[in-house]
């Protein structure tokens, strides 16, 4: 991971920082399209619980993910600070917009390569697959989220779901 970082991030990069259950996260600003207040969200049935629903973004339907649940943390609460970060990632050459529900958005920070450290070994309470590295900012540490990895894991899950035979399960209810 360290070598990967040193190759890719030769210069200072900008990150959007946000809070999720008292943890400070950051995501590459290049992936972020916009930040929205939580508006009316439509629940989608029969979806994994970290998928909070869909929102209408100027006529486009954008799924919103509860990042807390996705990362194995408690769900994002609802406060006046709760907001949705719209990220755009690429899956198989097509751009996918996705909303990420967070407790609050903080600011944009500059991080140079020396500010970023490899992911430390953590307890099992946080899924580290989606973490890119740790950013050091003044006294705080930022968890640099690899948003592509979060979504890449999505497609795997879908494949696994197909094998599970959801249909049979539903029929029993």
């Amino acid at each position: 991971m360290a070598s990967h970082l040193s190759e890719e991030n030769k210069q200072t990069m900008q990150y959007l920082t946000f809070v999720l259950r008292d943890e400070n996260f950051a995501v590459d600003i290049a992936k972020v399209r916009e930040v929205l207040d939580v508006s009316t969200m439509t629940k989608i049935p029969r979806m994994p619980d970290y998928l909070s629903g869909v929102i209408n973004l100027r006529g486009n339907v954008v799924p919103v993910m509860d990042l807390g649940k996705k990362l194995g943390m408690p769900p994002v609460g609802h406060s006046k600070n709760t907001c949705i970060i719209i990220v755009e990632i690429r899956i198989d050459d097509s751009a996918v917009e996705l909303g990420v529900l967070t407790d609050s958005v903080q600011m944009v920070v500059d991080l140079s390569p020396e500010d970023i450290e490899a992911v430390p070994r953590m307890g099992s309470n946080l899924n580290t697959d989606f973490i890119h590295g740790m950013g050091k900012q003044e006294e705080k540490f930022l968890i640099l989220l690899d948003i592509d990895a979060v979504l890449a894991s999505e497609s795997e899950i879908i494949l696994r779901d197909l094998d599970n035979g959801d249909l049979a399960e539903i029929a029993v209810h």
């Binding site: 049935p45 029969r46 339907v61 917009e97 996705l98 959801d166």
Partner: peptide, 23 residues
């Protein structure tokens, strides 16, 4: 759209956007 999971929701044919902009 690119988000595969949304393409096949059981028991859901699609969606509409209502006058109040809700899906």
């Amino acid at each position: 759209g690119g988000y595969e999971r949304m393409k096949n929701i059981e028991g859901v044919e699609g969606y509409t956007i209502m006058g109040n902009e809700e899906i």
